[in-house]
Amino acid sequence: MRYFLLLILLLLPSASVFASKIAIIIDDIGYRQSDKAVLTLPASITLSILPHTPLGKNLATKAYQQGNEILVHLPMQALNGKAIGAGALTNAMSENELKTQVANAIKSVPHVTGANNHMGSLLTQLDTPMRWVMESLRLHDIYFIDSRTTKYTQAGIIARSVGVPSLKREIFLDNDKSKSGLEKQFQQAITLAKTKKKIVVIAHPYPETIAFLTTNLYRLDAENIQLVPASSLLPQQVVVTAAEQSELLQDRDRKIW
């Protein structure tokens, strides 16, 4: 009887189970020596590394060894014409050129399991090139997180229509790197996580951001929010709704100038 009661207790829901989950992605990693500081953050922080960068391979390897999840930060064409960097994906590329570029970007960052877009306010609006991107990611068994650099992004819809598991960014943590700016966004992330239960936050390897996270991440536990790798938030099934598919078809021929 005593053993039966013990079994029941073990099967009961634990009080330590978190009510909400949050994934924090640090991206734009690979060029600056100061980026190495991301290795001081907890292993549950997800790191997104730019392809073909001087520090990319080494940082990806060390981060993976200490338990961080690794993404490739795919540079995509922006509306403002800003230089995109090595591995750029543009709407001028043929299908073969773009898919080769994606494959080379993945190869340049060891231990990649996912991807998110660097810039991309133009490319993520375009059906055909984004479909090529998603077909490439599916081939490499890589999920996608839409950084949502434009409200007109089609990336998530296209990802799901192709069968690529996907998530979207809810909050940018450090557009304002001041202590008050970081605190405002961090508190917003806490509030939103409690409402939505699962959210993605994107930040950058600024010294100010790393210092803030180092001293404030403990607050998530107190708020009953668990810090998790991005992949743990992925949906169990990839489904595109009829409404989303209709919206995608309606936007297929949109001209962007």
Score class of each variant (00 low, 15 high):
59 L>W: 05
60 A>M: 06
60 A>V: 01
63 A>N: 07
63 A>R: 05
64 Y>S: 13
64 Y>W: 14
64 Y>Q: 09
65 Q>G: 12
67 G>S: 08
69 E>V: 01
69 E>L: 08
70 I>W: 03
71 L>C: 10
71 L>I: 06
72 V>Q: 00
73 H>W: 08
74 L>S: 02
74 L>P: 00
75 P>Y: 02
75 P>N: 01
77 Q>H: 07
77 Q>A: 10
80 N>H: 10
81 G>Q: 04
82 K>Q: 15
82 K>H: 14
83 A>I: 13
84 I>H: 08
85 G>C: 10
87 G>L: 03
87 G>Q: 03
89 L>R: 00
90 T>I: 10
91 N>Q: 14
93 M>R: 06
93 M>L: 11
93 M>G: 04
94 S>D: 11
94 S>R: 12
96 N>K: 15
98 L>E: 10
98 L>R: 04
99 K>N: 11
100 T>D: 14
100 T>G: 13
103 A>G: 13
104 N>D: 15
105 A>M: 10
106 I>L: 14
110 P>T: 10
111 H>F: 12
111 H>V: 06
111 H>K: 12
112 V>G: 00
113 T>R: 08
114 G>W: 07
115 A>G: 01
115 A>T: 12
116 N>I: 00
116 N>P: 13
119 M>G: 02
120 G>M: 03
121 S>C: 04
121 S>W: 01
122 L>H: 03
122 L>A: 00
122 L>P: 01
123 L>T: 04
123 L>R: 00
127 D>A: 13
128 T>P: 08
130 M>N: 07
131 R>W: 12
133 V>I: 15
137 L>T: 05
137 L>K: 05
138 R>C: 06
138 R>S: 13
140 H>Y: 13
142 I>V: 15
143 Y>Q: 02
143 Y>I: 09
143 Y>F: 13
143 Y>M: 11
145 I>Q: 05
146 D>F: 00
148 R>V: 15
149 T>R: 06
150 T>C: 08
150 T>M: 08
150 T>K: 03
151 K>S: 05
152 Y>S: 04
152 Y>I: 00
152 Y>H: 10
153 T>M: 01
154 Q>I: 03
154 Q>Y: 01
154 Q>W: 05
154 Q>G: 05
155 A>H: 02
156 G>A: 09
157 I>A: 09
157 I>W: 01
158 I>A: 04
159 A>Q: 01
163 G>W: 05
